[in-house]
């Protein structure tokens, strides 16, 4: 064990407390019986949990969010895996430029990205709102895909690719039979991480949703503007639980330390 100073321990504790306390409050408050968010709750009730399923817009937007996130993530994987492969396998002119381009959506503020996509896709190109939302989501999650796939490829021994070719497989066949199976856990992790980011996204979705098409986070935002009851707290607890389960799967498949590189 490393010897750590007491002061640092206390500091770390305070930081975690500051970060996590609001979430704890939300969890407790969501089980309260009152009509407004109260902490500590005076009693126990599941009526706000039940209320989530009574609001029709939540059910509708939840399905839209799932659909957008799953389809968006699949498209981003199809684009991102070959890109990550090319970036780690080959040296070519402008490699760092392309690397920068692919990772840039993670650095640009979501509001800026959302607004420019609205201007560009919806107003200028007159694309349907659903398509625009999907494109927006693909753009924001590609950096995550590339990061994760690149780090799983960094441990990849490319001589097994040559071994496959020397045994008679062409490049495409080699990619599917040798490369892909060996970065499988990276692909799973990339999928989950990208899905979470897409599902929870607000800033980009805010600009690319409209009448008749909304995502769950946006719908929640609209709901809290007019209602103060703990339904949103209850819904947040469910979303938190969902995210926690997914992160747990990543941790089990390849460890969160994967992303610390």
């Amino acid at each position: 064990m490393h010897k750590t100073s007491k002061g640092l321990k206390i500091f770390a504790f305070l930081v975690y407390f500051f970060l996590l306390a609001p979430l704890v409050i939300i969890v407790f408050a969501s089980f309260g019986p009152d009509k407004s968010l109260t902490f500590p709750p005076r009693g126990f009730s599941l009526k706000w949990m039940a209320n989530i399923f009574k609001v029709e817009m939540f059910r509708k937007t939840f399905l839209i969010s799932i659909k957008i996130s799953v389809i968006g993530t699949l498209i981003a994987l199809v684009l991102g895996i070959p890109a990550a492969y090319a970036l780690s396998r080959y040296n070519f002119r402008g490699k760092s430029f392309f690397n920068g381009i692919f990772l840039s959506p993670a650095l640009i503020p979501g509001i800026v990205l959302g607004f420019s996509l609205l201007k560009y896709l919806v107003i200028y190109f007159k694309l349907p709102i659903y398509t625009s939302l999907l494109i927006g989501h693909v753009i924001i999650i590609i950096p995550y895909i590339i990061r994760v796939i690149s780090s799983s490829l960094s441990n990849f021994d490319y001589s097994i690719e040559e071994a496959s070719m020397s045994l008679g497989a062409n490049k495409v066949k080699t990619f599917f039979t040798v490369v892909l199976p060996n970065i499988r856990s990276g692909v799973i992790a990339a999928f989950i991480l990208a899905f979470i980011n897409s599902f929870n996204n607000v800033p980009v979705s805010l600009f690319l949703t409209g009448p008749g098409l909304s995502t769950l986070p946006i719908q929640m935002l609209i709901y809290v503007e007019y209602n103060f009851d703990p339904t949103i707290a209850a819904l947040s607890v469910i979303l938190m639980a969902m995210t926690a389960v997914l992160m747990f799967i990543i941790e089990k498949t390849l460890g969160l330390s994967y992303f610390a590189k």
Partner: peptide, 20 residues
């Protein structure tokens, strides 16, 4: 002639076995 059409066996220094 591309590698996969040559029918030569190659043994690598790192063995390059398929881990999966």
């Amino acid at each position: 002639i591309p590698v996969h059409k040559r029918n030569f066996g190659f043994v690598f220094q790192s063995y390059a076995l398929f881990p999966h």
